[in-house]
């Protein structure tokens, strides 16, 4: 097997809430191969978001190691990590998380600024991405002027901006109606199929998980099953 895009090795995450210790992850071992489409499922409080933060290199584990394309992220400085994250990972959030002061175009151009791309290149690429999302007419609108579905498409265009190896989507359809949600999942699936990129979706919706090729169920900070179909959503029982 090729080198995993992301690898978690016995990852523990313990939050100190005053005097109480909250163990969010209990020794997670996980490998995601390049080109995979993985769903992580679990009820709220199961540790999904924490695992997502680890995979997205947004946080460091209390114990254990996280490798991004073979590199141990704990050995990187915060700036190096930002750089690597910006280049390798694209994020799609449930709340879209667009910068409200910037236009759709500028939001998509933003990750490219931090990679030092020239303005012309950025503009061209951002326009092309937005057009491919069917937003060619809306590029100069700011996010408050866009519908939820449009915002999420802008967010996906932004996630694709630096042509990342890995796209992480956190409940990408959570704030959308089912029709729009379906469209969004189709865009992600398309990207995965056409470009052969890795996609990790965190969700509690079995319908969404069904798009993926591999489903990982977690409960109480542990992986309890790794399987292929959403019908085996164990935690629902």
């Amino acid at each position: 097997m090729a080198e995993p895009v992301i690898k978690l090795e016995n990852v523990w995450k313990i939050y100190q809430l005053g005097k109480v210790e909250l163990v969010a992850l209990k020794g997670i071992n996980l490998e995601v191969a390049p080109g995979a489409f993985v769903s992580i499922m679990g009820p709220s409080g199961s540790g999904k978001s924490t695992i997502l933060n680890m995979i997205g290199c947004l946080d460091f584990p209390t114990q254990g190691k996280v490798f991004l394309k073979g590199e141990d992220i704990s050995l990187l400085t915060e700036n190096q990590l930002s750089q690597l994250r910006g280049k390798t990972i694209g994020f799609v959030f449930q709340e879209f998380n667009l910068l409200p002061n910037l236009s759709a175009l500028e939001n998509v151009m933003l990750p490219m600024i931090f990679q030092g791309m020239s303005e012309e290149e950025r503009r061209e690429r951002a326009k092309a991405l937005l057009t491919s999302m069917g937003l060619g007419e809306r590029i100069f609108h700011q996010s408050p002027e866009l519908s939820a579905g449009e915002r999420q498409r802008v967010a996906i265009a932004r996630a694709f901006a630096n042509n990342p190896e890995l796209v992480i989507a956190d409940e990408p359809t959570g704030n959308l109606d089912s029709v729009t949600g379906k469209k969004i999942m189709e865009i992600l699936t398309d990207f995965h199929k056409k470009e052969g990129k890795t996609i990790i979706v965190v969700t509690h919706d079995p319908n969404i998980a069904n798009y993926s090729e591999e489903i990982i169920n977690i409960k109480d900070g542990q992986i309890i099953a790794n399987h292929l179909t959403a019908s085996k959503v164990l935690w629902q029982r």
Binding site: G56, E78, S82, Q83, R85, G86, L99, P100, F114
Partner: peptide, 16 residues
């Protein structure tokens, strides 16, 4: 704060 988080998530360095 959230905007800052977003910028960092998409690759902004501290200096930016």
């Amino acid at each position: 704060t959230r905007e800052i988080g977003i910028m960092k998530a998409v690759g902004a360095r501290n200096s930016a």
